[in-house]
Design a binder for these strands. Sequence first.
DNA 1: TGTGGGAGGTCAAACGTTTGACTTGATGGG
DNA 2: CCCATCAAGTCAAACGTTTGACCTCCCACA
Lengths: 334, 334
Amino acid sequence: MKATRVTLAHVAAMAKVDRAVVSRVINNDPTLNIRPETRERVLRAVAALGYRPNAAARSLRTARAHMFGLFIPDFANPVYAEIIKGAEAAAASLGYVLVTGSATGAGLKGYMDQLGQGRIDGLLLAGAEEESELTEQLDRAAVPWIMLNRRIPSARRYVILDDERAARLAVEHLVGLGHRRIAHLAGPATADTATRRSAGYSAAMRDAGLPDGPVVQADYTPAGGAAAMAEILAAPEPPTAVFVANVASAIGALEAARAAGFDIPARLSMVAVHDLDLASYLYPPLTTVRMPLEELGRRGVALLGSLKPDETVEEILDGPIQLIPRASTAPPPG
Amino acid sequence: MKATRVTLAHVAAMAKVDRAVVSRVINNDPTLNIRPETRERVLRAVAALGYRPNAAARSLRTARAHMFGLFIPDFANPVYAEIIKGAEAAAASLGYVLVTGSATGAGLKGYMDQLGQGRIDGLLLAGAEEESELTEQLDRAAVPWIMLNRRIPSARRYVILDDERAARLAVEHLVGLGHRRIAHLAGPATADTATRRSAGYSAAMRDAGLPDGPVVQADYTPAGGAAAMAEILAAPEPPTAVFVANVASAIGALEAARAAGFDIPARLSMVAVHDLDLASYLYPPLTTVRMPLEELGRRGVALLGSLKPDETVEEILDGPIQLIPRASTAPPPG
DNA sequence: TGTGGGAGGTCAAACGTTTGACTTGATGGG
DNA sequence: CCCATCAAGTCAAACGTTTGACCTCCCACA
């Protein structure tokens, strides 16, 4: 019953015009000169037959796939959900489809093989490791790519958030509450965001006339955060507050603090970067710094859509960065 | 410098054979009869030129896109992360690309418009609302689709998990600890999974010779769970344990119990369906039932890959379902 | 000496769009 | 009356693969 797919030719036959006319009507070709009634006929035929252009044929002819890719390290990290949301929305409004993938390392390369030639018009890489072979491969294939929230030497295009400002905001909040011994549970040295947040921490401490507290690195996971927190609290004179570089680490850090018998916020205040719905359901609800992650995804796609061949992009997104006070921060004891 | 893309024709010229030979070599066409040395020449040319087949041309010719789609309601829900992971892996091993999208409702329809004709060979719908217009559209476009973990009347193809068994496991755990007044914080009536879990709860209670406790419905969100929990605890003789249909609700329920002054697990035990890394970092760490979500994604893709035109699929996945005991469950007080 | 068959390929027609170039008939200006 | 212009389309060549049909040797066998 379904038989053959309906193509331009069918529509053209029904509307009694050339295929070219149908194509131009569909694509709103401004060079087309046509009588309104003819256009009507064409549109009616399209509707009547339920015609949809074949994506492959179109891509073949125009050399554009109308697809963007977005690669993230891990779907389980809710931080990326916001980026995806923004990117999806932006792509949709551009008439593009967004392919979100989570493969990393070797998997990512395999993915790219499949993506093959001409399947994707541009790629967003969020929080990716330095994958020089991958980026080389992309360059060879002439696929434009932009890094999100990470700068690496070989990336001539990136858009990042103002992590330094976010860190300052967090530290200033703690200082404002009266804290003076403020530790920093930092991210991994390999993450550019971690470096920027650490810089913001140090700058804010300096501005407040305070010496840097203990700084311990951890990866952006609960387990890593827990271990680092334990280390910080084991010191002879532990801090009264800690600025945690990432909310995932903070989830573990809360647990470690509880385990060590440090009441939060009575004995220890904690603030972390990146807000999540979840933050208000943690125990205690976590004070966070909200960053415009959705906007980051949106902006990344928008840039992909309007990229000139050899254009470089180095953008610090200025969107609202906001401290969300919850129950994990309070004045220091005493 | 990079000039024109390298095509079959270039490779053929370099290897001094016909394009057809190159195509057949690349696709391992078993009907091809060729001397090993010729094959060698072809492969060398492919490598030397860095040739990759053009996906659009291939799709056009073969009418297969080598892409599957997966639609989920929300990337922020980590439960879906596991499904995606499994689906991605299965797709990759089939040589397919997986397009994961989160649009719902009208957005989803727009997405499908973009996906257009022939861009996708099959679709997985996870936890989707009943979208009769969407599924009609899919059927018209002859795109095979399978529902994941949800049965709806119009879906002739679905694969679900054994939610009833998971619920039993949870309830039996509570009964085993000595609980007799066990409430059920159920999911929304519109969710098929919720219905199945509720059925499992009732069956297990009956088997244990216990009367159904209070049953309150909530949507699968922390806020919904919190409200429902508050209602349950407001009763004159509150239960000593609660089986929560979904971990997202449980996160809110924990909060509500704390707010109501119910110490967990001393005064109230709680167990929820779906395990997350996060569960062990909640306060207290949450006892859960782990279900094979990754396998669900994997199986869905595998089925898509081997679907006969009018085949129906009604499968209850039998994978390991396992209770993960943590600190939120203990014997009842007294 | 013819012929059947296999090895090792070649040929060319699709697949469904897009798009620059071209046609046709009518109108208007000089 | 003739040429230019314009409106309203038409024509056909790509885009890069895949694939059924075909071709051309050469050898073995009767």
